[in-house]
Nucleic acid binder design. Structure first.
Lengths: 214, 214
DNA sequence: CACCCATTGTGTACGATGTCCACATTCGGA
DNA sequence: TCCGAATGTGGACATCGTACACAATGGGTG
C-alpha cells in the first residue's frame, strides 16, 4: 500500500444510495464485537465510506442510531428463537409439542445471549435519554417480537392444558424474568465463561423451575 | 457571586488527603443519577476540586475508577438487603423465620433496583475490557456480598427443612436469575414505570415462583 | 426540456473527554 | 537536614458528538 489504504467500499456516486441501512449494518458489526458502547457514530460512517455528518441526515442523534441498531439486534434475537423452534424434532403428541415449543423459546433466547453477547447487550440497552415507547420494529421473520413469541408459547401451554388458565396472566413476566436473569448471569455475572454444555444444563434447570413454579 | 463560584470544597493544602475515596464518592453520585455511563473521570475530579490527572495517582484508568464505584454500589445493595432482613417482624416459628429471611433477600434486592436504578445498573455493569475476577470488596456491613447473602438464606431454608438438600446445589443461580431478571424488567424493560405497589406484587409473584420451582 | 429546490453529503469548527508527558509540591524517613 | 517517593498540576493530543455553512444531485413542475 502506498498511502491510501481503502478497504472501504469507496463509492463514485455522490449519493450513497442506502446509507441508513449501511449505518445500521455497520453499527450491528460494532455492537457484535463491543456491545452498545462500541456503536460509535464516526466509526459507522467511516465504514460506510461517508463523512461523519452524513449520518445526521438519517438519524437525529447517535442515540437514534444506537436505538435502530438495538432494534435490529432484537430482531436477530427473535429470529434465533424462531429458528430454535423450527429445528424442533416432531413431538409425540400435542401436549409434548406445546411444551417443546415453550422450552425452545427459552433455549433460543439463552443461545443467542451466549453466541452473540454483544448483540444481546445492545438489544436490551436502555438509551441514556430514556423514554422510548414500546416495541418498535424488533420482530423476526414471523413478525413477532421476542416477547410476543414467549406469549404465544404460553398460550400454547394453556391450550394444551399444561398451564391452568388462571395462572396465565402475567406469566410472561415470570418466565422472562428467570430466563433473562440467567442470561445476565451467563454473559456478565458469576456464570460467565461457563462451558456451553454446562450453560445448557443451567438453562434446563431454570426452565424446569419455571415450569414447576409458573 | 462575582466570577468564581466555588461550591466545590476547595482545599488549601496541596494534598487532598483522601482523594481516592472522594473520587469514588463523586462517582457514586454521578452513577446514582445517570448510571455507569455518567461516571466521567473529569467530572469526578472536578467535584473533588482537583486536576483531572490527579485521578491517575489512584486509578490506572477510567475503567478502574468505574470498577471501584461499581463495587461500592454493590456494597450499597448488600446493605439494603441486610436492612430488609433486619426490619423483619419476629416470625411465629423457625420455619417461617427462614422463609421470611429468604424472601427478604429478594425483596431487598428488588427494592434497591427500584429506588436506586442508577446505582443498580452500575453495580452490575460489565467493564468494557472484560476479565475482572470474582467479587472484590462488595460486601455490606455483615461482610457478605449480595450473592453470599442469598446463599446464606438458602442454607437457612435447608436447615428449616423447607428446601430438600438435594435441591440446594446451584439453587442460588435459579433464585438469582429470576429476581435479577425481574429487576431488569422493572427498571429497563416493559415493566418500567410500574407503580411501586404493583412492582411489589410482581416481586411477590416471582419469589412465589422461585419457592415453588426451586 | 429546462429550471428550481428539497434531499443528501462535505468541510470546518468547537467543546468535552480520556490519557500521556514533563514539572511542581509536599511529606516522611535516613 | 535533606532527599526520594507520593501526590497534584499544566499543557498537549487524538477522538468523539455535533452545530453551521456550503456543495452536489436528482426529481417534479413549468
Amino acid at each position: 500500500m502506498t498511502a491510501a489504504e481503502n478497504n472501504k467500499p469507496k463509492r463514485d456516486t455522490y449519493r450513497h444510495g442506502d446509507l441508513r441501512n449501511a449505518l445500521i449494518e455497520a453499527g450491528l458489526e460494532l455492537a457484535r464485537q463491543g456491545g452498545p458502547a462500541a456503536v460509535v457514530l464516526r466509526a459507522a460512517t467511516r465504514q460506510a465510506g461517508v463523512a461523519p455528518n452524513a449520518a445526521y441526515r438519517h438519524f437525529t442523534d447517535r442515540n437514534a442510531l444506537l436505538h435502530a441498531v438495538s432494534q435490529a439486534a432484537m430482531a436477530h434475537l427473535a429470529r434465533t428463537m424462531e429458528a430454535e423452534q423450527a429445528a424442533l424434532p416432531p413431538a409425540t403428541d400435542a401436549t409434548a409439542a406445546a411444551r417443546d415449543r415453550f422450552r425452545a423459546v427459552g433455549t433460543g433466547y439463552l443461545r443467542f445471549a451466549q453466541e452473540e453477547p454483544g448483540l444481546f447487550r445492545t438489544a436490551f440497552h436502555v438509551p441514556d435519554d430514556m423514554a422510548h415507547a414500546a416495541a418498535d420494529t424488533a420482530a423476526g421473520t414471523t413478525g413477532k417480537t421476542p416477547f410476543e413469541l414467549l406469549g404465544a408459547a404460553l398460550d400454547g401451554l394453556v391450550e394444551a392444558g399444561i398451564l391452568p388458565e388462571d395462572r396465565r396472566p402475567g406469566a410472561e413476566f415470570l418466565a422472562w424474568s428467570a430466563v433473562h436473569g440467567l442470561a445476565a448471569l451467563l454473559i456478565d455475572g458469576p456464570l460467565r465463561g461457563l462451558h456451553p454444555t454446562q450453560a445448557h444444563d443451567a438453562g434446563r434447570h431454570v426452565i424446569d423451575m419455571i415450569e414447576r413454579g409458573i
